[in-house]
């Protein structure tokens, strides 16, 4: 029995060295060499300074910005340090209340737009950090953003198209629009 414990202990230590140190460090080295931008968080820069990540959504509530997915993270929406979904069940009244509030906020920012609201704009995302919305959700907000910025809708449409990606390889996932990149591009346009 004593020998068995010694065998086990030695095996555990060696395996820990291989799997817990060698493997992640080798992966880190290769990742930094081959895909440095992705391995370090796919950061987006403005004037040479990181202002966010292409993959991590930020919260927008002003009419001049496209709004992203609602986020259930605390203490603020899109808290990158504490990802979480709402975990509200489908029959939970709190879920319907939250949806109603989000619809009211969208309508208040865009009076006169009575179109049905695309579902992702009223439901919290799985991570609380979803960086994207569907093309439908972008179209729903397009007139509002154009008006708030005094831009031609066609110009905004162009930018939306620039940050829209289709299904990967034509099949996988869903078409989507990157909200942070789109809003940064809108701001950059305004500066010009």
């Amino acid at each position: 029995m004593k020998r068995l414990i010694l065998n086990s202990l030695a095996m555990l230590v060696l395996m820990t060295a291989i799997l817990g140190l060698l493997y992640p460090l080798a992966t880190t080295g290769l990742a930094q060499l081959l895909f440095p931008a992705q391995a370090n968080g796919s950061l987006v820069s403005r004037d040479g300074k990181a202002v966010g990540s292409r993959l991590i959504g930020q919260s927008f509530t002003e009419p001049k910005y496209f709004w992203g997915r609602p986020s259930a993270t605390a203490p603020m929406a899109n808290n990158g340090a504490s990802s979480t979904p709402s975990n509200q069940g489908p029959t939970n009244p709190a879920l319907t209340d939250a949806a109603r509030q989000r619809i009211d906020a969208l309508r208040a920012a865009d009076p006169g737009n009575a179109a049905p609201v695309p579902v992702e704009l009223v439901t919290a995302s799985g991570s609380g950090l979803d960086p994207e919305i569907s093309p439908a959700a972008a179209q729903y907000q397009l007139a509002r953003v154009a008006k708030a910025r005094g831009l031609e809708p066609a110009k905004v449409q162009q930018l939306v198209a620039r940050f829209t990606s289709g299904r990967q390889f034509g099949v996988l996932g869903e078409p989507r629009v990157n909200v942070l990149q789109l809003n940064l591009a809108l701001d950059a346009l305004a500066k010009q």
Binding site: T123, G126, D130, E132, S134, P135, G173, E174
Partner: peptide
């Protein structure tokens, strides 16, 4: 233009 369905707790890219 959208996946639709029950999107509470789901990510846009996965639909």
């Amino acid at each position: 233009l959208q996946s639709g369905g029950n999107m509470e707790g789901k990510e846009t890219r996965f639909g």
